[in-house]
Amino acid sequence: MPQLNSVPLSWYLILSAILFGLGIAGFLFRRNIITVFMSIELMLNAVNLTFITFSYKLRQVDGHIMSFFVMVVAAAEAAVGLAIILTVFKNRQTLDIDEVESMKY
Protein backbone atom coordinates (compact mmCIF):
# COMPACT_ATOMS: atom_id res chain seq x y z
CA MET A 1 0.00 0.00 0.00
CA PRO A 2 1.56 3.29 -1.07
CA GLN A 3 1.89 6.18 1.34
CA LEU A 4 -0.59 9.01 1.25
CA ASN A 5 1.99 11.65 0.50
CA SER A 6 3.55 10.01 -2.52
CA VAL A 7 2.22 8.54 -5.73
CA PRO A 8 3.94 5.61 -7.45
CA LEU A 9 5.58 6.75 -10.65
CA SER A 10 4.03 3.87 -12.55
CA TRP A 11 0.52 5.17 -11.87
CA TYR A 12 1.25 8.26 -13.91
CA LEU A 13 2.46 6.09 -16.78
CA ILE A 14 -0.60 3.86 -16.58
CA LEU A 15 -2.86 6.93 -16.57
CA SER A 16 -1.02 8.13 -19.64
CA ALA A 17 -1.52 4.73 -21.30
CA ILE A 18 -5.24 4.80 -20.49
CA LEU A 19 -5.61 8.26 -22.01
CA PHE A 20 -3.63 7.20 -25.07
CA GLY A 21 -5.86 4.14 -25.43
CA LEU A 22 -8.96 6.32 -25.18
CA GLY A 23 -7.46 8.56 -27.86
CA ILE A 24 -6.99 5.56 -30.15
CA ALA A 25 -10.54 4.41 -29.44
CA GLY A 26 -11.92 7.83 -30.28
CA PHE A 27 -9.82 7.99 -33.41
CA LEU A 28 -11.18 4.65 -34.62
CA PHE A 29 -14.79 4.77 -33.44
CA ARG A 30 -15.85 8.34 -34.05
CA ARG A 31 -16.92 9.45 -37.51
CA ASN A 32 -16.93 13.22 -37.07
CA ILE A 33 -13.71 14.73 -38.43
CA ILE A 34 -13.48 17.22 -35.58
CA THR A 35 -13.88 14.54 -32.93
CA VAL A 36 -11.26 12.40 -34.66
CA PHE A 37 -8.96 15.38 -34.61
CA MET A 38 -9.63 15.91 -30.92
CA SER A 39 -8.77 12.27 -30.25
CA ILE A 40 -5.36 12.95 -31.78
CA GLU A 41 -4.95 15.86 -29.38
CA LEU A 42 -5.85 13.52 -26.52
CA MET A 43 -3.10 11.13 -27.60
CA LEU A 44 -0.61 13.99 -27.76
CA ASN A 45 -1.60 15.01 -24.24
CA ALA A 46 -1.09 11.46 -23.01
CA VAL A 47 2.40 11.43 -24.51
CA ASN A 48 3.14 14.76 -22.83
CA LEU A 49 2.24 13.27 -19.48
CA THR A 50 4.72 10.45 -20.08
CA PHE A 51 7.45 12.92 -21.02
CA ILE A 52 6.90 14.95 -17.87
CA THR A 53 6.73 11.85 -15.67
CA PHE A 54 10.08 10.63 -16.95
CA SER A 55 11.43 14.13 -16.60
CA TYR A 56 10.53 13.90 -12.91
CA LYS A 57 12.13 10.47 -12.63
CA LEU A 58 15.41 11.60 -14.20
CA ARG A 59 15.33 15.04 -12.50
CA GLN A 60 15.96 16.64 -15.90
CA VAL A 61 14.08 19.38 -17.64
CA ASP A 62 14.55 17.89 -21.12
CA GLY A 63 11.21 16.10 -21.00
CA HIS A 64 9.50 19.41 -20.36
CA ILE A 65 11.15 20.86 -23.46
CA MET A 66 9.89 17.90 -25.49
CA SER A 67 6.32 18.39 -24.35
CA PHE A 68 6.70 22.10 -24.99
CA PHE A 69 7.58 21.27 -28.59
CA VAL A 70 4.64 18.89 -28.77
CA MET A 71 2.34 21.71 -27.69
CA VAL A 72 3.76 24.06 -30.31
CA VAL A 73 3.41 21.47 -33.05
CA ALA A 74 -0.12 20.70 -31.86
CA ALA A 75 -0.99 24.39 -32.18
CA ALA A 76 0.36 24.49 -35.75
CA GLU A 77 -1.44 21.25 -36.53
CA ALA A 78 -4.72 22.59 -35.13
CA ALA A 79 -4.50 25.76 -37.22
CA VAL A 80 -3.88 23.93 -40.50
CA GLY A 81 -6.14 21.00 -39.68
CA LEU A 82 -9.11 23.16 -38.80
CA ALA A 83 -8.57 25.23 -41.96
CA ILE A 84 -8.68 21.97 -43.94
CA ILE A 85 -11.83 20.89 -42.09
CA LEU A 86 -13.45 24.22 -42.96
CA THR A 87 -12.55 23.74 -46.63
CA VAL A 88 -13.86 20.18 -46.64
CA PHE A 89 -17.11 21.29 -45.08
CA LYS A 90 -17.37 24.12 -47.59
CA ASN A 91 -16.96 21.74 -50.52
CA ARG A 92 -19.02 18.79 -49.28
CA GLN A 93 -21.37 20.09 -46.58
CA THR A 94 -20.49 17.18 -44.35
CA LEU A 95 -18.18 16.41 -41.46
CA ASP A 96 -18.57 12.64 -41.66
CA ILE A 97 -15.30 10.93 -42.51
CA ASP A 98 -17.05 8.10 -44.32
CA GLU A 99 -18.66 10.48 -46.75
CA VAL A 100 -15.38 12.09 -47.77
CA GLU A 101 -14.35 9.16 -49.93
CA SER A 102 -14.12 10.29 -53.56
CA MET A 103 -10.39 9.48 -53.67
CA LYS A 104 -11.27 5.83 -52.99
CA TYR A 105 -12.63 5.10 -56.42
Binding site: S6, V7, I18, L19, L22, G26, R30, M38
Partner: peptide, 21 residues
Protein backbone atom coordinates in the same frame (compact mmCIF):
# COMPACT_ATOMS: atom_id res chain seq x y z
CA UNK B 1 -2.44 14.62 0.05
CA UNK B 2 -0.47 13.93 -3.13
CA UNK B 3 -2.21 10.61 -3.57
CA UNK B 4 -5.67 12.08 -3.07
CA UNK B 5 -5.00 14.87 -5.54
CA UNK B 6 -3.61 12.39 -8.05
CA UNK B 7 -6.55 10.03 -7.71
CA UNK B 8 -9.14 12.80 -7.98
CA UNK B 9 -7.65 14.41 -11.07
CA UNK B 10 -6.71 11.13 -12.70
CA UNK B 11 -10.33 10.05 -12.25
CA UNK B 12 -11.53 13.30 -13.78
CA UNK B 13 -9.11 12.88 -16.69
CA UNK B 14 -10.17 9.31 -17.40
CA UNK B 15 -13.85 10.16 -16.98
CA UNK B 16 -13.59 13.07 -19.38
CA UNK B 17 -11.56 10.92 -21.77
CA UNK B 18 -14.27 8.23 -21.80
CA UNK B 19 -16.88 10.94 -22.27
CA UNK B 20 -14.93 12.26 -25.27
CA UNK B 21 -15.14 8.87 -26.93
Amino acid sequence: MDLILFLVFAAIAVGCGINLV
